[in-house]
Amino acid sequence: MLELRLVQGSLLKKVLESIKDLVNDANFDCSATGFSLQAMDSSHVALVSLLLRSEGFEHYRCDKNFSMGMNLGNMSKMLKCAGNDDIITIKGDDGGDTITFMFESPSQDKIADFEMKLMDIDSEHLGIPEAEYHAIVRMPSAEFARICKDLSSIGDTVIISVTKEGVKFSTKGDIGTANIVCRQNTTVDKPEEATIIEMQEPVSLTFALRYMNSFTKASPLSNTVTISLSSELPVVVEYKIAEMGYIRYYLAPKIED
């Protein structure tokens, strides 16, 4: 049986908003480590990996490892019924065909429970090898979201290049071209406003902007985003979820044949 209680229920609402447009159905894996998910989009170009560690919950009980298949659109509909300040409790059973979401208002004067039907999902799990990345860029998540949004009004793909000059985001389309360069900047008032570039060697990769834009839906979860790049490898776009874990997106590059 699984029973978890999350005081900061808004966090789970934000998690759903950041994955539901990328993946329709997914298996949530429950174990003593935490509540996790790995799922690919239908074209197998992007993958989302979520971990909410058990220590991050006020109460976490999972007697046995098991998976629960959920339609993320339906789960999002249910979680939208929780208030932003609500405490969310999730209950499920191994082999059960439903999951229960309980929403408690902070003053305990309103308690709601929603039962959602589970589904059997034949999902493909991918083994993600440990990789040494040529360049790791950490920047404000709002800045990255702004860049992706701006570039997608000009073109469909983004070339991300890291050199010792900084990180460059470029696109081109029918109306013209665009280049945005962000330099390392650590002289900021708050650490989360810094742009930090760790480069082992220069790297340049091409990606579909549509997916990058979808990843930026996770921006409300974290002030910063980390983009890890290696030649001929999928990019990793990571948003840390404070005290709890992370949401990582992997996106396969476009490569000249």
């Binding site: 993958l47 799990h125 991918l126 083994g127 091409t206 579909a208 396969a252 490569i255 044949d257």
Partner: peptide, 14 residues
């Protein structure tokens, strides 16, 4: 134009 690869080109199934 470059071709969109899939994740199965890079990661191991299973």
């Amino acid at each position: 134009d470059p071709t969109q690869k899939t994740l199965t080109n890079f990661f191991i199934r299973g």
